Amino acid sequence: MKRFAGVTGVVALGVAGLTACGGGSGYGSGSSSAPASAPASSAASSPAGGAAKLGTATVGSLGKIVVDGNGRTVYVFDKDSKGKSNCEGGCLALWPAVPSGSGAPQLTGIAASLVGTITRSDGSKQLAINGMPLYLYAQDAQAGQAKGQAFGGIWWVIGADGKKITAHSGGSGNGNGY
């Protein structure tokens, strides 16, 4: 009986260790661990030290919106102001900043005059449209999703013209926004 209990304990520890390393998708886990912020490192689909990429895609009833180089929807935050991000800490875990990369961003379907960068409080550079910082939503696990649209009534997708789209997509969106 003691041997069975010892083997069971070892198996349980092994499974717990594998589960901790495996982590599933990481999106929506509610933690601020690496998986939830992982999209930020590749958010703009730029090689290490490369330029960020932005383009457009038609997403559901929202029409043609701005996406990153991986086709993931980008958003603006109503609590930001032109040139300044107010999304920090836990907010960034759910809404990773779109990094600017190095050099001029590669743009497809977006006027270069609309796109710039801001400097975040930690000194990192973030892409912006019309001066408004850009973010991804961690729950948008793949291209073509816009689950963050109208989230908390303060997160919005951006049209190819650089203006936020405030139409509700019928999906997510209650709570305080982060």
Rank of each mutant, 00 (worst) to 15 (best):
G162M: 07
G101K: 00
I158C: 04
V115R: 05
T119V: 13
G101F: 03
A128D: 07
P99T: 01
G109T: 06
G109F: 02
G148P: 00
G101N: 06
K125W: 09
T108H: 13
A150I: 05
D140G: 06
S102N: 14
H168G: 15
A167Y: 00
G162N: 07
T166F: 05
S102W: 02
S124K: 03
W156S: 04
F151D: 00
Y135Q: 06
K163Y: 11
A150N: 13
S113V: 09
G171E: 04
Q142M: 10
A128L: 04
T117P: 04
A128Y: 05
T108E: 15
L114S: 11
T117C: 07
H168F: 08
A111T: 10
Q142I: 03
S172C: 11
A104R: 13
I165G: 02
G159D: 10
G148W: 00
D122E: 08
D161Y: 07
I154P: 00
S124N: 10
D140P: 02
Q106A: 15
A160N: 05
V115L: 11
I154F: 09
G131E: 06
I154E: 12
R120G: 13
P105I: 01
G123W: 01
V115A: 13
I165M: 11
G103C: 12
T108V: 14
Q139C: 08
K164R: 15
G144T: 11
A112V: 01
G109C: 07
G103H: 10
F151Q: 09
W155Q: 08
S121V: 10
G109V: 03
T108S: 15
I110D: 07
G170C: 07
Q145I: 01
Q139F: 05
G123C: 10
K164M: 08
G109L: 09
A143N: 05
Q142D: 13
L107A: 11
G109I: 02
Q106P: 10
T119E: 15
K125D: 09
S124Y: 03
A112L: 05
V157N: 02
N130C: 06
V157H: 03
L107G: 10
G152E: 07
I158L: 12
A150E: 02
Q126F: 11
L134I: 08
A167L: 07
I129K: 02
S113W: 05
A112N: 06
K164H: 12
P96W: 01
P105T: 04
